[in-house]
Design a protein around this nucleic acid. Sequence first.
DNA 1: CCTCACCCCCGCCAAT
DNA 2: CTATTGGCGGGGGTGA
Length: 330
Amino acid sequence: MSKSSKSEKPIKVAILTTAKVALFELGCAVELFAMPRLEFDNWYQSEVVTFEGDKQLAAGGLSISSRLIDSLYGYHTLVIPSWPVEQAVSKQLIDQLNEFNERGGRIITFCSGAFVLGKVGLLDNRKATTHWRYAEQFKKQFAHSHYIENSLYVFADNIGCSAGSSAAIDLGIEVIRQDFGYEVANHVARRLVIAAHRSGGQSQYVEAPIPKSNRNFSKVLDWAVENINQKIDVGILASKAHMSRRTFDRQFRKSLDMSPKEWIIKQRLKRAKELLESTKIGIERVSYCAGFETSENMRHHFRKNLQISPIRYRRQFKSGTTHSSSGACV
DNA sequence: CCTCACCCCCGCCAAT
DNA sequence: CTATTGGCGGGGGTGA
């Protein structure tokens, strides 16, 4: 199943509701995927759906009426905004989810929605996350899945989970970025009036309500992103975080489940992708702006991480859509 | 592709 | 006693 937004059919999205659905997360899903956005061609075609009858009771006595379906056939993406953690998943839904997954459908969950995937077994041997308030229960209940601490969202191989409310939007924006590119994602973020670039863009990688010690940690990441075009020595990062090199390495692994160097390369790739998608800057200069120093180096990491060359990556996104200036970097 | 100097990362362990 | 810290060093990855 391809994810191109060219002149093909729009991507069909199902947003699943259930009794006692969390309204904020449901709202996020609707806002991200179901708002009409006439400014974009081929925007998602989304529906709120349920397997449970024509009305669900939500908080505050609000009743929601959504389309009753008995199959996920025809949808490309399923969003599960939340799920009452104690509530069982019906046989029908289990079967539908398995089938949907095997068919190559994409599933993203917000907050407690991850419990559905857990119960179905789709998170076995996979990285996952959920709202921190369910973390302990989640780890206990789904011992086969690899719970990632302190991460706002995880998304890989067509399955994504995110933590609480605002992380849901971060995940949604990431999905939009993959489907429509960097500029469109930014545009949507702007319309939602959320910070697409929260102070340098990276505080999102560290869960917010964590006191002091982690504060400078995220500051350092912000600093790194702002200076991504330069050489970045891990030792410098450690000293900026007021930690020994060894402790920094450990903290980093614990928070982000990757090594500092790995993270830096990810950031460089991200920057390079942005430039390739939204500007016409030459490859040589893109690699320089992203801090790769040489284009061979960049090509190496593109191949390794994205299985595609920079040029081909750019061509993928050249689809008569928005073209912007030649743009200066730094 | 290869090669080589350098840098990173993580297990180990002693110290706190 | 356990938990955390941080120095060391080897093996492996990175970059020119």
